[in-house]
Design a protein around this nucleic acid. Structure first.
Lengths: 216, 216, 216, 216
DNA sequence: TATGAATGAGCGTTCATTCAT
DNA sequence: GATGAATGAACGCTCATTCAT
C-alpha cells in the first residue's frame, strides 16, 4: 500500500531528497574513488558510506561508471577554474601568488578531488582524455600566452611557461595527493590552515623568487 | 644409490628459470599496480602480462599482497637513493642540480615505480607507513640539516628545507605520474630524452634561481 | 511522502521467503556435510541441492563456516534432548527402554543429524569442543548421578554409568551412521519402521538384560 | 649426471626405501583421511605429513583414489579378522569376551583405521560397497550361524545374532571414532591402556550379562 | 627416485547489476 | 524512492595431476 503525494521540487527539477541523496552519494564516492581508484572502488563500500542500500544508490546513478563520471564532473568544475583567472593586464607577481594560494586552498579544502584526478591520470585518463586534449589544452595554451607576454614585457625571467604551470600544479597538488607522506616525514598530524599558510609562503617564495627578473 | 645433479643455481640461490620468472612477474605487476592500484589490480591480468598461468604466478609469490610488497621493495630500492647523495661539503647549486637531474632521470626510466609509489600514497600508505615514519623521515631530517647548513653559510636563501624537498619530489615525479596530462597538454607523444633535458633545464632554472641568494 | 508497506514478516522477524530458503539450505547442507564432512562438502553442491545459485545461498549464510554452524545448531537441538528426560524417580527399566526407543527413532527420522555429529567428532570437534566440555559434560554428569541412584537402590546391577550411556549412544547411532553397512550385511534395502522396531527390541533386550539385577 | 647402482630388493620385490616410503605415506594418509574423509583430505597435507614432495608421493601411488584404496586395504586387513575367530566349538562366554577385547584393543591401537572405515560408511561406502555385500556379508552370516548354534544349545539367550554383532561393533568402535567426545565427557586426556581395560570390563559385563541365559 | 615447474579445473567468496515488490 | 532477493562473471587462491629433468 502506497501513498504518493506530489513532491515539491527545486529549481533543477529535483526533489529535496533527490538532491540530498545525490550529494551524499557523490561525497561518499569521492572518498572511495580517491583511495582505491576506479577499479578498486566498490559500489558496496560507497553505498555503505552514503548510508543507503546498493540498489538505491544505483537508482540514482545507473552504474559505477556513470557515478564515476559524475564524480569527475563535480571535481573538475572547481579544480581547474583558478587557472582561468590569470590576467595578462595585471601584475604577474600578484597574479601568480594568488594562483598558488588558490590551488593550495583547494588542496586543503578538497584533497579528495585532487586525488581522484591523480588516480584518473595514473590509469591513463581513459575518461578524461578528450577533456585533457580539448578544453584543458586550450586553456593552458591561453595562459602560456599570458606568461609569454609577461616575459616579453620583461616582467618575468625567460622560462618555458608550460613547465611553470606544471610546477605549480605538481607542487600544490602534492600536499593533497601525498598528504600521508607529508605528514609522516614532516612529523605533523592532520594539516591545518596554519600549516597551509606556511606552505603557501614557502612555495610562493621559491617560485616567485625563481621567475621574477633580477633587479639591479 | 643415486646422485641427482642439483639444478645449477645462481649466486642468490635461485635457478635461472626462477630468477627469470620472478623478474617477469615483477615487471608485469609493476605495470598493473601502477595503473590500477592494489585493489584494482588483478592477479589474472598480471599473469597474462607475464605470459604465465595464474597458479604458476602464485607458485612464485604466494599471494597478491606478497607480490605487491615485493614490487614495492623493488621500487623503493632505487626510488629514494638519490636523496642520500646530497653532500654538505659540496656546492649546493651543483648538488641540487644533480639531485633534480637524478630524479627526473628516474622518472623517465621507470615511471611505473613512481606511479606505484603515488598509488600507495593515495590509499594512505597501509604498507609503507612504517617506512615513511622511519627510514624516510630520518633521511629527510638529515638532508634538511644539510640544507640548513648551506643557508647558515649564506649559500642559499633562507627557505624551509622540507618544502624545498617536497617541491623537488612533486615536480620531478609529476612528469612520471601525470605523464598523460603532460603529453596531452603539451601536445607531445611519448616523452623522450630530449624533452626530459628541456624539462630538467626549466625545473632547475626556476628552483635554483628561487633558492640561490641574490648576488650584489 | 510515501509509505511503503513492509513485507509481511513471521514471528521470528523473517519474511516467508527467507524462512523457506533458509530451511531449504539447511536441509541441503545437512545432506552434504553428513556425506563429506566440513572440508569435503562444497558450497556449490549444497546450492545445487537447494536449487539456488551459489551467491544466493551466500546471501543467506555469509560463508561456509557460518552455514556449518547453523546446521550443527539445528542438529544439536533435537539430538541431545532425549537424555535430559531420564527421571530418577521413575522405574529404570521403563526409563532406559524409553531412552533407547527415543534415540533409535531419532536415528531413523533424521540420520543426517547423526552423521553430521559423527563427522564433526571424527575431525576432532573443532566447532563443538566447548559444547562437549560444557553443556554435554554436565548433562551427562547429572544423568550418571541418576543411574548411580538406581544402582544404590538395588534397581540396577553395579555398572559404570558413563559406559552405559556410551553404549546406548554408540548402538543407537550405529544404525544411522553405518546404515550402509547395516543394509549390506543384513541384506535389507532402506530400513523401515518395522525393522527399527525389531532393532529396538533386540537392543533393549540385551542392554536391559545386561543391567537389571538378577532376580532370585 | 646420475649413477645408478643395482638395489638390493626385499622379498616382495621392493627396495628398502620403497617399502619405507610407502609405509610412511600410508601412515600419513590414514591420519588425514580419518580426519577429513576422502574429499576433504588433500594430497598436499598427506605429502607434508609423510615429509616428501607431492610429486614423489604420486610416484608411489599414482593418484589420490589409488592411495585411498591402498589405505582401505591396509585397514581392512586387520580390522575384520577378529570376527573370523569366533569358534562354535568353544564356550560362547569366553569367545565373545575375547572378541570384545580384541576389537577394543584394535580401537586403542589404531583408532585411525576405525575412523577411516567410519568415514567411508558415512559417505555411502562407494569404494567398499562390494566388499560389504560380499566377503563381509558372508563372514557375518557364518558367525550368525555360530551364534544361532549357541542359542540352540541353550548357551545363549535367544537374541537376534546380527544385532549382537552390530552392538559389539558399534560399542567398541565408538571409543575410537568418538574419542574426542569420550575424552570431553569423561573428563580424561588421551585414553591409555588402563582406561581401555576398564572399558573392556564394563562393556563385556553388560553384553555378556545381557546375552547369557539366566541360571536358576 | 626425487623435485621444481606448470596447469586446468574448481574452490569459497565478492562484484556490479537486475528484478520484483 | 527504497529494499530484499537473485545471479553471471570474476575474484584470489588451492586442488589433483602432469611434465621435464
Amino acid at each position: 500500500m502506497k501513498t504518493v503525494e506530489p513532491q515539491s521540487r527545486q529549481a533543477n527539477g529535483k526533489t529535496r531528497i533527490q538532491a540530498l541523496n545525490e550529494s551524499r552519494i557523490i561525497t561518499a564516492a569521492e572518498t572511495v574513488f580517491a583511495e582505491h581508484g576506479f577499479r578498486g572502488a566498490t559500489v558496496d563500500e560507497i553505498a555503505k558510506r552514503a548510508e543507503m542500500s546498493k540498489p538505491n544508490l544505483l537508482y540514482y546513478f545507473k552504474n559505477k561508471k556513470t557515478l564515476y563520471r559524475a564524480v569527475l564532473d563535480h571535481t573538475l568544475n572547481f579544480w581547474l577554474e583558478p587557472l582561468a583567472e590569470l590576467d595578462a593586464d595585471k601584475d604577474p607577481e600578484s597574479e601568480i601568488r594568488r594562483y598558488i594560494a588558490h590551488k593550495l586552498e583547494a588542496s586543503w579544502k578538497n584533497p579528495r578531488a585532487s586525488r581522484i584526478f591523480a588516480s584518473e591520470m595514473l590509469r591513463g585518463a581513459p575518461v578524461l582524455n578528450s577533456y585533457l586534449r580539448g578544453d584543458l589544452k586550450s586553456l593552458v595554451a591561453d595562459k602560456c600566452a599570458v606568461i609569454e607576454q609577461w616575459i616579453a614585457a620583461g616582467k618575468l625571467a625567460p622560462i618555458d611557461p608550460i613547465h611553470l604551470i606544471f610546477m605549480i600544479w605538481a607542487t600544490t597538488q602534492h600536499y593533497a595527493d601525498f598528504d600521508i607522506q607529508v605528514k609522516a616525514v614532516w612529523g605533523k598530524g592532520a594539516l591545518n590552515k596554519k600549516e597551509f599558510d606556511r606552505i603557501e609562503d614557502a612555495v610562493s617564495a621559491v617560485i616567485l623568487h625563481g621567475i621574477l627578473p633580477r633587479k639591479h
